[in-house]
Every structure is written in structure tokens, then in C-alpha cells.
Design a protein around this nucleic acid. Sequence first.
RNA 1: GUCGGCGUGGCGGAAUGGCAGACGCGCCAGCCUUAGGAGCUGGUGCCCGAAAGGGCGUGGAGGUUCAAAUCCUCUCGCCGACACCA
Length: 820
Amino acid sequence: MASRPRRSQYIPQEIEPKWQKIWADRGVMKANDASPKPKYYDLVMYPYPSGDLTVGHARNYVMGDALARMKRMQGFEVLHPFGWDAFGLPAENAAMKRGGLHPAEWTRNNIAKGKRELKMMGMLYDWDREVTVCEPDYYRWTQWLFLLMYERGLAYRAMAPVNWCPVDKSVLANEQVINGRCWRHPDVEVEKRDLEQWFLKITDYADRLLDDLQKLDKWPAKVRVMQTNWIGRSTGAEVDFPVDGMQGEVVKIYTTRPDTLWGATFMVLAPEHPLVEKVTTDKHRARVREYVEKARKETEIERLSTEREKTGVATGGFAINPVNGEKIPIWVADYVLVTYGTGAIMAVPAHDERDFEFARKYDLPIREVIAPPAGPHGALREAYLDAGVMVNSGQFSGLESAVAFDRIVEWLESQGIGKRAVKYRLRDWLISRQRYWGAPIPIVYCPKHGIVPVPVADLPVELPAEYRPLSEQPDWFQTKCPIGGEDARRETDTLDTFIDSSWYFLRYASPHDETQAFDPELANHWMPVDQYTGGIEHAILHLLYSRFFVKVLHDAGLVKPTEPFVRLFNQGMVKRFGQVMSKSAGNGVSIDELAGAQGADAGRIYEMFIGPPEEDVEWSDAGLNGVVKFLQRVWRLVLEPDSIVADGDGAAAATRAVDAVALRRKVAQSVGRVTEHYDELRFNTAVAFLMELANTMQDYLQGGGARDLEWDGAVRVLLKLLNPLAPHACEEMWARLGEEGLLADASWPTFDAAAAAEPLVTLVVQVGGKLRDRLEVKVGLSEAAATEAALASDKVKNALSGRGPSKVIYVQDRLINLVP
RNA sequence: GUCGGCGUGGCGGAAUGGCAGACGCGCCAGCCUUAGGAGCUGGUGCCCGAAAGGGCGUGGAGGUUCAAAUCCUCUCGCCGACACCA
């Protein structure tokens, strides 16, 4: 190219910084709170500033940025903010690794680096609204939200086991426990310690979190299913089983199958169940204690093999089945979880796989009470789980088990031995972290007044400057009681970082408000988020927590919406060598490398073209060249059409010449398809359509098409459609065409149905479902006329081998099918 | 184990039930050029055929339909989530 000076060259390294500066100077990315335009809140999941933003992150952000740019051109006032999930473990680990480095310093360095890279990719974020959760002006309000929860009775303290490394004298996250050992000390077994912890009562919102999923019809079905399963609501009955020989002592069990009550042949308590000691007879005490001890330790270490054989011991105690007065033995087994239901079950081996397995192993009786359609088995080979006719069930025998549920529950209630009950898999959210790098929990423990929340006026409770566990910094944690001024002690735990991220999207609405977490008026203006884009790895926790927070804030009268995110999209991960890309894994491709190689625009298009947005993709540089070629071709089409005409091979080009009508049609069609696919974030096909448009335009030129208004229109549409993905190049070309700023002033092209309509359609003629011929016909041909035209074709006559069709199927204007 | 998703050329992948393989990579041939990893033109699912044309083709087996990559049943393979939730 260097040898052809007549051509202007596409040199991204020159034009990209230039346009980035112009955009910044013009402030095109700023969201105006007072704009009369309709709002569009385009949110991408903020990253952890780990210092290695890769092309994997960029894939998410290109989608968000392209959408924001399109929406701006469509006349929306777009809020497209960015921030940093800056509290958390990696900063502490990095600080530990490099002795002397403070997590704050490490974090801030990474943020600076990441910000530079994002700007380099041409992302237009409203940096005036940047949010960094580790800064006091943010976590002040995180603490305030905790106090709000506390005030509303949603935060409470309870004992909970934590992973404890005896060498580090520190709590470990679950991910840091590998095979029951500390990740940093593979020879050291992690201990389980019971510590007093803070919880949020998310279970109070279980029903609403579940039911409102139905409103989220623009969320991927997959995520809704995952959340549904996570919440895990089941309906059943709680039934009281008196303990034999112990006046007034009952074991409450939970079952989803009250229709199988008559088949209960034993009872099982979780090892941690409070009644275990009581029901155990002296004869069995030693063995039971040994089992409980062992079970406790095992679950602590790891539930490695879930397929392991069930174990348990008899307590020697008996319970009375209240429905038939039967005495059934009470066992203890670790397959019953103390954390679910009542921690105790009635075991119905005939109709439950687990109970069946257990009964077989310990030779406990199995009694069939639900007969399959084929009739009772007598000797069961496996548990029968489906519905059937109830047998051996007193007055309910003969009833269809499927319809018996309600009647049995009513009867239990009338007898005072049981009641309807709903249970959840969801547990309350443990939010205490015995970590330095997080928002301190704003609580003071006073010997006189007990748990005392820090007054809002005293927020933030700032982290001490020194990086050391808070519990080892008496200068920091020694304080006075806010109520009476007594010597008191601060809470030394910090908040789970998921709290930070459960409300950051609200802070963006009024990021500098020093009087409140967010301005309700502005929050209600921008909320809910119209499009939320991020990784599937947050399908459950982050999204569930954010939904929970918004519901609580709604109940507190602070936000109107009950759901934060209208439309959710989970983009796939970028992998390399089969693994998720990251610097620490050594397979990362940085944004620097991508933008440096062939420019940000090529990188942006390539990120989108590499595969379907929701699928994981394997990174390779192979296709990047094709994208660069495409950009260069657009450049030539727009600015150097002469060189394209000159390159055309007249003879060849004539065979697929595109006339003005065909060009107009293609342009109109592209507007429709590209707009629709951008909107649905299907960027890979949108890019393909843009390539098709460029191909068509090239054919038009090479076939001798005039460079008239038709052509100029096509050029402008191409630039506008391509602008969200390749903004620098398009702005530059637009400017060279002598137009005003593309981003600032241009509007999105509108779809012209008339231009897109085809004056002639291809009538596809099938015989017996097989393609036989294609005929050019007028749009809207009647069925009779279409059939006549089809039958005139020799090929069709051949296929019908002389006979006429016995049946004619005519579909739209495009297809006719003759059945011989 | 349960739930969910996915199997289409050499590769990434397109296809409201209606011309399978768009778009791109790669490859082949040619053109252009003061030897470029640039640009341009044509070709490129498989088989038979010089060609025209014909046959076969979306993991496998059935089914529904005038018509199936697409819907249904079974099956094989890969991936993901949950994992004893009574």
C-alpha cells in the first residue's frame, strides 16, 4: 500500500486516539439527568480490578458500548456507567505476596490501568459517575444499607461454622479449602470453628424472589431455572411423632409425601439434631456419640463422595407414628441434613430411594403403601416414587395418591398432629467476613447496651490505615458506646463483597450524593436497568442478592421498581487453550495486545464476530485479519471508490452486477436486520450482515453502478450501522465526507419496507417436497396462477412424470409444492 | 444421579418448519506487482460425471408433515449447573 500514495490509508493508530479525545472533550458519554429524551439504562457488570482485564472482559464491554452507541443514535438518553468491585480477597492475597504493599494501593493501580485500557478500546463510559466500592464515600452507604437491614429486622447474629486455618490464624473462603486443607498449606487440615456471624434474612423474601421470576420474561430461561432451583421451594407437611415412653416429647418431621405416612417404618434424625441425646438409650449411647462425632468431622472436612454408601446407627429409642400408632425405631444418619426441613424425617423405604437404600443396608422393614397401576409388588426391587393407589393406609386406602395430599393434610390438621408447611433450600445469607479488605460492619458491642448500631451520622466506619486483621488493632476497635459512652468494642468483621455489588447500580444514579446512598428521585428516573450484561457465573448469587436488596428498598419506600434488571444477557466466556482466560493462568490476551495489534475498531468487531455472544469461544488470532480487511474495504468504498472500480474485473463483475434497485433493497434490508440483531445483542450475525452490505456495494461499483445519490445514501447508511462497532473509523470517514459529528448528531437510519420489498420473488417449486425449479414471478401471484406457471416448467413436468399433481400446496409468495 | 444446553463443511459458525452451509477463516487456481504475509477475480459439503446433470447429506434410529438442522420419541456423545433438600 505504501507504494500507492494516491490512496488515503486507514491507520487506526492515528485516528483512534484522536477521536477518543474528541469524544471526551465533547462529553458525548455523559448522561443528562434532566434530558427530555426517553432514558435507557445500559449496564455492564462491573469488574474486579485484578489488573488483568483481558479480551474476555472486553467482549462484555464491547456489547454494552455498542448498544449504548446505537441507543444514543436512536434518540435515547443513555446511562452507561462503569465502576469497580474493588473489595475482596485477591487484593489481600496480592498484598501478602508482595510484602508491604497495601491492598488499597494495589487496587488503585489496577483501576488506573484498567481505565486506560477501556478508554483505549473506545468505550464511552460516563466516568463522572465512576463508582469504586472500596472508597469511603461508597462504603459509607454500604454500611448504611446494612443498618437499614438491621433496623428492618433483616440482619441478625447467629453461630455459624467457618473454615479456619490454624497456621494463618485466619478464616478461609470455601474456595480456599482444598480437600479439607488450606490452599496455602497443603499439609494443614482446616478446622471448623463456630463463630458468631451476621446474617441477612433473605429467606423472608424467598416467596417473592421466586414468584417475581415470572415477571422477568426478558431473562434467559436458564437463569430463571437456576434461581428457581436455588430457592428450592417445596410444599408438604410437618407431622409430630411422639417419642415412645417420653411424656410430651415429640419429633417434628417434614415430608413432601404425606400420602406415604402409613409406609413409615423408621425415623431418621440428623446427627446434629437436638433430640439425639435425649432419645438415645444408655445401651446405644457410646455408639451414637461416636457416630455423631465422626459425622461432624466428616462434613467439616468435605463431602467428597456424594455417592458414598449411607451410614447410620440406631438410637435404641422409638417414635410413635401418629397416623396409625405404630412404634418405629429412631436412627441417626448423616444423609439427613440438620439445615433442611426439621432435621428429622420419617423414612418410607418403599417410596423413597434414599430410605430404601438405608433400609436394605440395615435390614429395616419396607412396607408398600402406594400401589403402581399394575398393582402391588409384594417384594420391591426399588423404591416406587410415582403416584398410584393408596393401600395399607387406614381410611385413605383406595384413594389416588395424587389427589390425597390435601385431604390428608386437612385430616392431620383436624387431628392436631400435623400441618401444611413450605420449605426452602435457600438459606439466610452469611455476610460476615473475618477479613481486612471490606466494609467494616457498623456495629459496636457495649457491655451495657449490647449490640449498638453505629449512628448514621458517624458513618463511614473507616478502615484503619494499617493492613492487619481488624481484630488485632485495638487502637481501632476500642471505642465508646454511641448510647452511653461506655468503653465498647467495634465489630471487627467486614461485609461480604456481594453486599457492595447488590446496590452499585443504584449509586450510579447519583454517585456524588453525600447525604444519602442514592437520590430516590434520580434512582427512580433511571431504574430499572433496561439491559444488564455480564457473565453467567453471576446467574445466582449476585443477581439474587441484587433482587433481594431492591425488594427491601422498595418496601422501605426508597425505590419504585421491585426488580432491578428488566433484560438480562449472559455473554459466553472467552477461553484459550481450553481454559478461561486470565493472567494468572498464563493464557490471557490483554486489551493492550488486542487494540495494539490492528486497532481498537478491528478488535471490537472481531470480539463480536468470533462467535455467538452467549456461547463460550476459543480465542484465536486467525480471524482478526479478515476483520481488518473488512474495515479497509469499507474505507476504500467510502473514501476511495475509484480504486475499487479500477480493481474490478469487468467480465466477471458483469455476471453478478448489482443494479441501483438491488442496492437500495440491500441497504433497506441491512438497516432492518442490523438494527434488530444489535438490539438482541446478536452481534456476530449483525457483523455478517454488514459484510454482506459491503460486498453488495462493491459489486455495485464494479458492475459499473453510478456514484449518484443512491450510492451516497448507501455509504452513509453503512457508516451509521457500523458506527457502534467501529466508532473511530466511522467517525473519521464521516468527517472526511464533510459531515457533522456522527455520534453527536447522526440519527439511526430507519427501515424502509418499501425499498426492502422485492419487486419479483423467486417462486420455489417443489414436487413431493423436493426442489425442482425456481421461477421469477410477481409478488402476490394467486395460487392458481402460480400453479399454472409451475406446471409450465419442463423440469416440473419431468418430475411429475407426465401425471398431473394430485395436490397443490401454496405457501406465501415464495413456494409452491406439487404432490404427484 | 437430577435439571438444563449443545452436536451442521478442513475451522468459527448462518438458517420465522419452506433453496442447508449466510458471513468469515483456511485452502486451490488465476490476475496485478520495482518477489509483499497487501489488493483483485474465480472456485471450495460429499459421491458419480468432461459438462449438463444426478445422487447423498445437519451425531445415530424411528415418527409427525406436502415439506424437518428446526417439532415428537428413543439412543449415543460433549458441555454446564445443582448435588442425599425428605
